[in-house]
């Protein structure tokens, strides 16, 4: 069975990728935020993909989408809305690439937006299974694993943080509220445009 892994330039998702790829074939997908974060995260992800033995990485720039969320929706839901978009896009990419599941590097409550309630609202956007190999890991365990597999130093590298995110994100999002926010933007068009802009980056 094959799945789509959401691979960022951070510490967690490479470790999740390492764990899931022991048992499943994986296509890796990187969401970049070129306009607001620069291309450093793409460069980092390619290096990480190489370290993980991948030969290609799908890259999708979602800067426009994030701008829409940040300007038109309640900012406290920014991360939940962003993750729901990521899953929508990942689902389409999965279907196009004969993948049966999506995998992410989320671990419970590691950041304020990554709560059980928020993950429930995020997952409600797709019927596709979302696997989270790190869900019960704490940060120290993840860092230890990242060091073992050699991705930690790469993940530590330069990257701009997500400056559009709120200072105080919602921690107990409710699906009906989030869906109300999504009515303020053209979800289908944003997803379709993002999928259409997907490109494979060669991993040298």
């Amino acid at each position: 069975m094959k799945g789509v892994m959401l691979l960022s330039g951070g510490i967690d998702s490479p470790v999740a990728m390492h764990l899931i790829s022991k048992v499943h074939d994986i296509e890796a997908l990187h969401f970049s935020n070129g306009e607001f974060a620069g291309k450093e995260s793409v460069d980092k992800s390619i290096l990480i993909a190489k370290k993980l033995g991948l030969t290609r990485l799908m890259v999708i720039d979602i800067a426009h989408l994030l701008k829409e969320i940040a300007t038109k929706c309640s900012r406290k839901y920014y991360f939940v809305l962003m993750k729901r978009f990521m899953l929508r896009i990942a689902e389409k990419i999965a279907l196009l690439n004969e993948c049966a599941f999506i995998c992410t590097g989320d671990s419970l409550a590691q950041v304020s937006s990554q709560t059980m309630k928020n993950l429930e609202v995020v997952d409600a956007v797709t019927p596709m299974p979302v696997l989270r190999p790190l869900i019960g890991y704490d940060k120290e365990e993840i860092i230890l694993l990242a060091k073992e597999i050699g991705t930690f130093d790469l993940s530590k590298g330069p990257e701009m943080c997500d400056i559009l995110g709120p200072k105080h994100p919602a921690t107990k999002a409710r699906l009906e509220h989030v869906m109300e926010e999504e009515k303020k933007i053209n979800v289908a068009a944003l997803v379709d445009n993002a999928v259409a802009s997907a490109r494979w980056a060669a991993v040298p």
């Binding site: 306009e35 607001f36 701008k67 940040a70 300007t71 900012r75 400056i163 559009l164 709120p166 200072k167």
Partner: peptide
């Protein structure tokens, strides 16, 4: 570049 609650991003000679 963008203005939202609590911040704005300007383009100053090609630098954000």
């Amino acid at each position: 570049v963008i203005r939202i609650e609590g911040m704005m991003i300007l383009n100053i000679q090609g630098v954000q």
